[in-house]
Simulated scan of single mutants.
Amino acid sequence: MDDQTLRDEEESLRQQIAQLSNQQKQYYYELETQRIKDPDTYAVLNYFFVTGLHHFYLGKNMQGAIDLIILALGILTIEYYGWVLIILISLYELPQLFRSQSIVHKYNNDMMRMTLAEVTHRPVF
């Protein structure tokens, strides 16, 4: 998704949130605070640690585990061309570093959509 589409989607979600009752808004923002991720943290985890920690940060545990295993195999077999695995995983992860803002923006929009659905389907007391 391009940046403009992500911004438009976020704006649409914000408009839907504005239509919630005060009680629903309060509950929504409590949940949102727990779920929204910081793009800079994602980028730092990707930049400094090719270990897949940035995948764990967004809850993509399987992808993070695969990255960790490949990196560990590369380190353990560094004398037997393990450096090739390290280079390959680095090349695979490099584009994600440059797209980190968009990746996290999409993730946050998805979390906003999920949280909005949860709040609107919750019984009001």
Rank of each mutant, 00 (worst) to 15 (best):
P123Y: 12
L73Q: 02
K37E: 14
L116Q: 04
Q15Y: 05
N61Y: 15
Q34M: 13
I78E: 12
V84K: 03
M111N: 05
D38T: 03
W83M: 12
I75P: 01
L20K: 03
P39D: 14
E9Y: 13
A65F: 13
D40C: 03
I70A: 02
Y42N: 03
D2L: 06
L13D: 08
Q16K: 09
L31Y: 05
K106G: 11
N108W: 05
Y29V: 02
D67M: 09
V124C: 03
I36R: 10
M111Y: 05
L6P: 02
T120Q: 13
L73M: 14
L20C: 09
V44E: 12
V44F: 13
I89N: 04
Q23R: 11
Y29H: 10
L45A: 07
M111C: 07
R113Q: 14
V44G: 03
K106V: 07
V124G: 00
L53C: 07
A65R: 05
I75T: 08
E11N: 11
L94Y: 09
V119S: 00
L58K: 06
M114H: 07
L31R: 09
K37V: 06
Y47L: 15
A65P: 01
K106Q: 15
F48I: 15
H105A: 09
L73K: 03
R122S: 07
Y107E: 06
V84E: 10
Q96I: 03
R7T: 11
L85I: 04
D2C: 04
Y57P: 04
F49P: 01
N22L: 14
G59V: 09
F48K: 10
D38P: 00
Y81K: 04
A18F: 13
P123D: 15
H105M: 11
